[in-house]
Design a binder for these strands. Sequence first.
DNA 1: TTCCTTGTTGGACGAACGTATAACAAGTGC
DNA 2: GCACTTGTTATACGTTCGTCCAACAAGGAA
Lengths: 201, 201
Amino acid sequence: MKPAPAFKRAEPDARRASLIAACARVLAREGAAGTSVRAIALEAGVSPGLIGHYFGSVDALIAASYAHVEAQVQAAIDAAVAAAGPDPRARLEAYVTASLLPPIADSALLATWIAFWSLVPANPAIARQHDEQYAGFRQRLEQLLAQCGTSTAALRPAAIAITALVDGLWLELCLSPQTFAEGEAAEIARRALAALISTDR
Amino acid sequence: MKPAPAFKRAEPDARRASLIAACARVLAREGAAGTSVRAIALEAGVSPGLIGHYFGSVDALIAASYAHVEAQVQAAIDAAVAAAGPDPRARLEAYVTASLLPPIADSALLATWIAFWSLVPANPAIARQHDEQYAGFRQRLEQLLAQCGTSTAALRPAAIAITALVDGLWLELCLSPQTFAEGEAAEIARRALAALISTDR
DNA sequence: TTCCTTGTTGGACGAACGTATAACAAGTGC
DNA sequence: GCACTTGTTATACGTTCGTCCAACAAGGAA
């Protein structure tokens, strides 16, 4: 009888993806301070050396995880907007509230995000990645606002204010979920959105 | 001739304060990952052992730094409100815009704050400290709103929305200051505040 | 001056870190 | 069934981490 294989080979892309996922889980559970090569390897069920083999350094793996989380968030928001149908106002509302409902409103996701932020002072590449993400978020919001009749001059301040509102609500919602009733944050965002855009036509 | 003293003794409280200040500077400059006992001691110009002597562990020093930064922020906001005079609306506006102007709107302060947040997953004491700070922030805001004529039923959602708006703006302003013109964030906050409270009377 | 208290130093210690690398073995092609 | 490629493991290395502690010395008391 043959002995059971000591390990399984994986498709390079699949292995990379599993390492990224493991990195995100460790970041969420332990914070940036506890996210070491060994911890990630243990979480992924592989040996520590494999991280160096695929990503070169642990910083590169973390940057890749950041990009992956960003893509997930963007995809979830896009899906919510698409599900809202053709009405511009409904699409705008979906865009705003998507961040305040599962799966984006999630403590683990916030922990991951904070871990990334904490790397910004020492890692300009992460900072740039974040800037681009936010610029894109605001730009899409401006498009939705324009379709809802917001005047051109009011587009930029309105997008900034709404983005800030969503970010702040998302932050507080994830930091202390017990503060909010089920769906309360999304409801607050809906009302605030109505108030904000009513003055910008 | 006597040799120059090898070191100077300090009043315990003064020494503690200088260590806290050094800790905050290192957190802002290096991020949480680079904030070690040795780095803090070097920044403060003392030997590493002294941190253990005064705070027991580096976690305790970081928690003390968190409390100190919180107190500074609260003091700056209170000063802004006091300087705004007796008019309730002016006081509310001062409360909101204070966070978006110096000295609170500061990249180093954000870096410090993020470093604290990144410790939350592994450090429940920091998390509790943060919750209390935010609850206090919202409670004062509710008082100011009530004096401006906001109805009792609308107090809580309005305070939450405005707090979120300020947090989000502060975050973006500190993360990428080049995105905003001088005073633009405060101006956006002023207009958004007007829109938000106009519907809650 | 001399003594005493205690703030302060500086190094020792084991643990954990990131990275590099040689040896191993899984799976594919022949 | 055999050889070859290369994904994977396990270990070693030097560094840095947090904590501890014995010795030192600054500054006030007697």
